[in-house]
């Protein structure tokens, strides 16, 4: 475990050099948020109106949190990196090292996005306060629980994307799989909470990755309850085990197919 923590630390130190780039990249996040804020303003006739159990303020905060989680994740970069490692044969430099390749990818990526996540969280909260001039009613303990679920959500997302990237062992370009995954998360979990969908779809979504990678932390942020918090954390732990097992299975199957010619 210590070696993975060391990798995370190294990546954080390295990323501190690019704070300006990260802050500039926040503009993309701001644009998306601005569009969605306008959309909710158009849909809600007044601030107190309830649509599917959410006020306009709650919906805006929900989107702020889910967008922070998604946009600081850098999923496309992670998927491309693994896909490129596999296609170029670079992966051979990693498989003979005294660490697990999946653990290495996960810790490198978590280290990579740590600074970005912190900056996006700070600027995202600031944007929310600017738009809404209010903050959800949360205690310090509640905020810590939301942070824990956010870290777990990010880890699950990263593991799922690693699994998608590892598909490159079998199909050269795993990028298209990532596009569809990202759109599903975006539509079913980032823009809308699960309650916006018909009952039958809600039941499916409650067991899907959407529940643990985006809905969970955002729901707790806008409407905290201990019952919900416990069920979300439990679901996240189960999902981490499932996602890691899938990564391990694809990796073990795929690594046997490596055929590197010289280099």
């Amino acid at each position: 475990m210590r070696k993975y923590l060391f990798i995370i630390k190294t990546q954080i130190m390295s990323n501190l050099q690019y704070v300006f780039n990260i802050v500039f990249g926040f503009i993309g996040y701001f644009i998306m948020l601005f569009i969605l804020f306008n959309l909710w303003k158009y849909l809600y006739s007044d601030q107190s109106e309830l649509i599917n159990g959410y006020t306009m303020t709650q919906m805006t905060w929900y989107v702020i949190v889910t967008e922070i989680l998604w946009m600081s994740l850098g999923g496309r970069k992670l998927c491309n990196k693994i896909s490129k490692d596999v296609r170029s044969g670079n992966i051979t430099y990693n498989i003979n090292k005294p660490y697990n390749y999946i653990g290495y990818c996960l810790s490198t990526h978590l280290g990579d996005i740590f600074v970005k996540g912190l900056i996006y969280t700070f600027l995202g909260m600031l944007t929310g306060l600017l738009f809404l001039k209010s903050f959800p009613d949360l205690t310090l303990v509640n905020i810590i629980v939301v942070l824990i679920t956010s870290i777990l959500a990010t880890s699950i997302s990263a593991l799922i994307i690693i699994a998608i990237g590892l598909i490159s062992f079998f199909i050269e370009d795993s990028g298209p799989f990532y596009w569809v995954y990202s759109k599903i998360i975006l539509v079913l979990g980032t823009i809308f909470p699960i309650e916006y969908f018909p009952n039958i779809i809600q039941k499916i979504l409650n067991y899907s990755p959407v529940y643990v990678v985006s809905y969970g932390p955002a729901k707790l942020f806008v409407d905290f309850s201990w019952d919900k918090a416990i069920s979300i954390v439990l679901a996240q732990i189960i999902y981490i085990l499932i996602a890691y097992s899938i990564c391990y299975f694809i990796y073990k199957k795929g690594v046997k197919r490596i055929n590197v010619n010289g280099g």
Partner: peptide, 27 residues
């Protein structure tokens, strides 16, 4: 395979966004 999967998945990717508008128009 890569050529075709790129095209097909992009169509699927764009189609996913229709769900967003179905939900919005239900409101």
């Amino acid at each position: 395979a890569t050529f075709l999967s790129n095209i097909i998945f992009m169509i699927l990717n764009n189609s996913c966004m229709i769900i967003q508008w179905i939900v919005l128009f239900s409101i």
